[in-house]
Amino acid sequence: MKILVPISKVPDTTAKIAFTDQNTKFATDNVTFILNPTDEWYALVRALEITEKDGGTVTVIHQGGADSEQFIRKALAIGATDAVRIDSEPTDAFQVASSIFEYAKDKGFDLVITGKETIDYNGAQIGGMIAELMDVPYVTLASSLLIENGKATVSRDIEGGKEIVEVPMPCVIAAQKGMAEQRIPNMKGIMGARSKPLTVVPPANTGYTKITSFDLAPQKTACKLVSPDHVEELVRLLHEEAKVI
C-alpha cells in the first residue's frame, strides 16, 4: 500500500492576523506556524495506522520554501516514510494540487488522504482537485476509513447524520475528527526523521486565481448586556434592533 498525504503549514489559531504591502500580503512576522491540524492529526496518523497494519509506505508532500523543512521533519518524526517538498510558496489551490499531481501521477499511489481543510484559507479544495486530476473517487468529511480488498470504506458526515460509502482504489479521502488520534513524535522518531529521504521538486504550474487584497473583519461594537431578570428585553432587542427574530 502506497499512501500520499499532502500537508500544509498554517498560522497557529491564536496568531494575530495582519497584512502588509498595501494589504496584499499576509504579515508573517512574529507568527508561529504549525502543521495544519486535520492534516497532522487525522490524515497522517490514519495513513500510518493503515501501513502499520497492512504494510506499505506513507509519503508526505508539502509546497513551501526551505523554511518549511521543520514541518516536514515533524511529519517524518511522527512516522512518515519519506517526504517531498515542492519548492515554491503556494499561489492558489490549483497550483498546489496540480504540482502534487505532477509528482504523484507515475508513482502508483493507492490512496491519498488529506485533512478536511486548512485553517488559513479554509478552501477545502486540494483533495477534490487532486482526485479530479487523477480521475478517481473522492470522499470528504470522513470520520473513519477501512481498507479491504482494494476498496475503501468510509464513514462520511451528511446533513443530519452519517453515511457509509465504498469506493474502489485508488481514491482520495478528506479526513476529519474521529478518523484517528493525534500522535506526539518521540525522541527516536525525531532522531530518525533527520535521515529520512526528502526530495525537492519544482512547482508544475501557475495558479488560476490571485488574491488582489485582504482586509480585516470589522471589529464588533461593545456587547450590550441584558439583566438575567429581564430576558424579555433581549427578545425585544433581537426583534426591534437586530431584526433577527
Binding site: N122, A124, G128, Y208, T209
Partner: peptide, 20 residues
C-alpha cells in the same frame, strides 16, 4: 458539505479558477 466535495473537481475539469 456536498458542495465542498464537488466544486474543486468541477474547477479542475473545466480548467476554471475557483473562489472557495
Amino acid at each position: 458539505q456536498n458542495g465542498k466535495a464537488i466544486a474543486p473537481r468541477v474547477s479542475v475539469r473545466l480548467q476554471s479558477g475557483m473562489v472557495a
